[in-house]
Simulated assay, not measured.
Amino acid sequence: MVQNKWYVHPAIAVAVLVNVFVMGLAIAWSGDPAKLQRLLVEDGIVEWMQFLCFAVTSGLLAFAAVEHWQRERRIDLPLLALVGLSGIVALAALEEISWFQRILNVTTPEYFAQNNRQGETNLHNLAIGKKGSIHKTILLKVIAIAGLTHNIVLPLLARKRPAIRDFVERFGLYLPPLSASVIYIVLVAISHLVIDHPRKGELGEMFGAMHYTATVFAAYFLGIGYGKRPIFETPADSRRVGTLFAMLLVFLLLTAWLLSAGAGAEPYLALHPNGKD
């Protein structure tokens, strides 16, 4: 039976609370430019949180793909979807931190130095036109349309027409719980309306990364909001692994905070006090 309430499991509830905490932190620090900059700057808390969430989500999808293969022993649409999504999310994680360029102190190749809006070794900031980039001109629009469709439109339609959910799951995909999705979208809207910072869009990206980390785990591993057979089928196993995963989400926030202090944020703030787009 498909469940749609976000509090049906601590994994989703904790993800919501982490996002609310970061939003509250941004609001509390909005009156202090230095603190807000520490939160949103390149290699700051929010960006490291995005990387960690993307990395975990990619691993979860890859694990789900392996489990699917072991059960079915054939190449089908769900397997291809899981493998493809795992690769795309892994790419997003590496792009987020410019393929470890700043951490490893690697010099930017000439092509990227001339064509990347931030002078970094990544694809999403490659220039388009005089002021645009792949990220701002294309990706943000695609993410917004896909995000609203996947989180709001399809779950709403599926409430009246369950065949829509069945159709989505036939391709190896899932629909997140509507109530959790609404909170995610509301937080993104609040971040754009309340926070005054050139990099405030990073908040929405982090909210989405955390939201998908939790809902991917809840769907494929526990069967929450998902009609197919989950990886953990017994209630006892689901409870144990779900509790551990909820603890992991909190640990990700702590790790992002520590990484921002020791792996780039402070030197970056010294060199770029106003940040970058």
Score class of each variant (00 low, 15 high):
Q3K: 15
N4H: 11
N4Q: 14
K5R: 14
L17Y: 03
L17F: 07
L17E: 11
F21Y: 15
M23Y: 10
L25F: 04
A34S: 13
G44P: 01
F51E: 03
T57Y: 02
L61C: 12
H68I: 00
W69S: 00
R71N: 05
P78N: 02
P78Y: 10
L79V: 06
L85I: 14
G87E: 06
I88P: 06
A93F: 03
E95M: 05
L104C: 03
P109Q: 05
A113F: 11
N115C: 04
E120I: 03
H124S: 07
L126H: 01
I128L: 15
L139C: 00
L148Y: 12
T149I: 07
H150M: 13
L156H: 01
L157A: 02
R159E: 12
K160E: 07
D166S: 04
F167M: 10
F167E: 10
F171V: 03
L173D: 00
L173T: 00
L173Y: 04
Y174S: 07
Y174W: 07
P177S: 06
S179N: 10
A180D: 06
S181P: 00
S181C: 01
I183Y: 04
I183S: 02
H192T: 08
V194W: 13
D196F: 02
R199E: 12
E202C: 07
G204M: 01
G208A: 09
T215I: 05
F217G: 11
F221Y: 11
G223K: 03
I224M: 12
G225R: 00
K228A: 08
P230L: 01
I231C: 00
F232L: 13
D237F: 14
R239S: 13
V241E: 07
G242P: 10
F245M: 11
S260G: 09
A261K: 12
A261M: 13
G264A: 01
